Each structure stands twice: as structure tokens, then as C-alpha cells.
Amino acid sequence: MSEFVFAPSHHVPFRDKEAIERCRRITRDQIEQHANPDYRIKVIPNAEVPWIGVTDMLGRIKRSAEEGRRLVMILPNPNPGYRHVARLINALQLDCRNVWGFAMDEYADEDGRIAPDTWKYGFVHSLKSGFWGNIDPALRPPEKQFLGPTDENIDSYGKMIEDLGGADVIYLGPGWTGHLAFIEPDAPEFDAPLDEWKQMGTRIVTLSPYTLAQNSLHGSFGMSGDLAAVPPKAATIGPAEVIAARHRISRHAITVHGTHTSWQRMITRLVTHGPVTPRLPESLLQTLRSDIYISETAAANIEPDFEKGY
């Protein structure tokens, strides 16, 4: 059989063929190994991954209540797991007066206008209705302590977190492009050498076409590939906010509704074992104290199955 060799499409943000092939060959048994002891990778059963965030968050909230200490979290959205955190808070009667939750990103329109928290498809709406709104009124913090980027605060959003003493934790997970939050590898607003890129903070960015495709499969947009339903831009934290957080927890477990199909299987390998580069934004975590939880499905070997179609 003759070999057919080609370069990745110019549309693909990361195109280093040697690094791609090396990461593609990483097996389930090898994926937990990493040279940085502070970058801790653990493969766990699929069903356990959603509970990693729930249990970690609840523990931090409980300690905050007991110690009377401020807790600042940077949070991803939408996340159905938040209602479980709220139920446990209510059951344990945890006082959340010292809890602050910052949405890591929010959609914006073609002119960079950020979606209001009343837009039912938005991330801040999800955060407030799914998390803050499910906490008993006697226990929940003031609404001003659960917030996201807006047209008015986008330029100072990072400083708002900094002024509270910085984020104690940020919860993450790589997108199809390797983005974290909406720090896209192919966004012109984040086009900079690594050292300069690391210092970049909150801003409005152009979303990658791959992110539009990824998010069009989300439940909030009908799970139907409706590309036009996903806004073209977004407000997002930057690498500076990720680096400044005291701890990072990243979960890799996205499948197509519980099947073995996972677009995350390859990008997981690239961001955990590929080069640290703005072309793979979540690769930044390899240099920082981070806990990475990978589902068995995402960790599975990459190999063809000619009996399957899409």
C-alpha cells in the first residue's frame, strides 16, 4: 500500500505534524505520566468526572463558611452540576456570604456587545439561575458576588478578581481547539508570542469556527449543529487570570451523549503532552500547579473503527 502524506489544513490552529503524531500515539497507560510533578493527571471512570467539580467546590465552600474566609472561584458555564452543589449547600446549611463566583466567559455579538445576564442561552444567566438561584435565600451571597463580564466591566474584570485577593481556584476543560475559557488559538485578539500572551487579560475575542461547531452541539443550542445559533464573539478571561489563580482543576470528559465518540480524545493528548504554546491554550496548565481529571473514554487509545460512520 502506498503512503499518502499530507499537511493539516491551514484551518487547523495547531499544525506541528511531529507533535501531533507523537501525541496521537499516547496510550491509555501512558497518559497519566508527566515530567512536572505539580501537573497531576488522573484517569477516572466516566461517571466520576462530573462529581470532581461538585465535591471540590463543596469542600471549599464548607471551609469558607467554617473559617469565615472569602472564597473566590472562576467558573465555567453552563454546568448542570451546579444545582447539585446548591442542593448540598442547602442540605448542610452552609453560609455562603463569603463566596464569590466569576463566570470565566460570556457570549458577545458581532460588534462585541456582551450578552446580558437575562439572555437565557448565556453563561452568566446559567450561573445565576443554576447555581446562585438554587441556594436558599438565607444562605446565598448577595447577587453582586455572582457575576460575569459586561460591557461596563470588561476592561476591569481581571482587576475585580485581583482586588478580592485573586482567585482561589479556576475550573477548566479544553475545547475542541484546545481553548480554555474562550482563549482561542486562532483568535486575532490573542495573537502574540508566548511570553506576551501569558500577560494578556480579559478581552472580547472572535470565536473559532471549531468552537461554533462544538457549541452548536450543546443542549442549550438544541444539539443540532445549528451554527447560526452560536454568537460570533465572546468576552473571556485571559492567560493572566489563569496563571494568577492559586489552583486549577481541569476535566476532560466530553462525549457525544455518553457514547464512545469524543472529539476531546485528541485535544486532551495535545494539551497535556504537546508543546506549551498559544496554539494550544490549555497547554499552559502544564507549567502550573494543576489537577487534570480525564475520563476513561477520553483517555482511550486513538485507533480506527471501520465499522462505524459518524
Rank of each mutant, 00 (worst) to 15 (best):
P188Y: 00
Y310F: 12
S126Y: 05
F221H: 03
V49A: 12
R246L: 11
W100G: 06
D111Q: 12
Y293M: 05
D16I: 02
I249N: 03
Q145V: 06
V99F: 13
T202P: 15
Q30V: 11
G158Y: 00
I161Y: 02
D95M: 09
D155A: 07
N301K: 10
I170P: 03
F146E: 07
R69Y: 04
E307Y: 11
H179F: 02
I52G: 02
F306D: 14
H11C: 10
T55W: 02
L92R: 13
F182I: 07
D186C: 05
G173D: 04
K159Q: 15
H34G: 05
M266Y: 05
G173Q: 01
R113A: 12
P231H: 03
R69G: 08
R97N: 14
Y121H: 12
E110H: 12
R97W: 08
F306G: 11
I161H: 02
L194Y: 05
G158I: 01
M104F: 03
D95K: 06
L280N: 08
T27V: 11
L127E: 01
Y171V: 02
A300N: 11
W119C: 10
I61Q: 02
A299L: 13
R289W: 00
D291V: 05
V72P: 04
Y157S: 00
N301Q: 01
R113G: 14
G166K: 08
C96H: 03
K62I: 13
R15Y: 04
F146C: 12
R40H: 09
P45H: 12
A19G: 12
H218N: 10
P13S: 07
E196G: 05
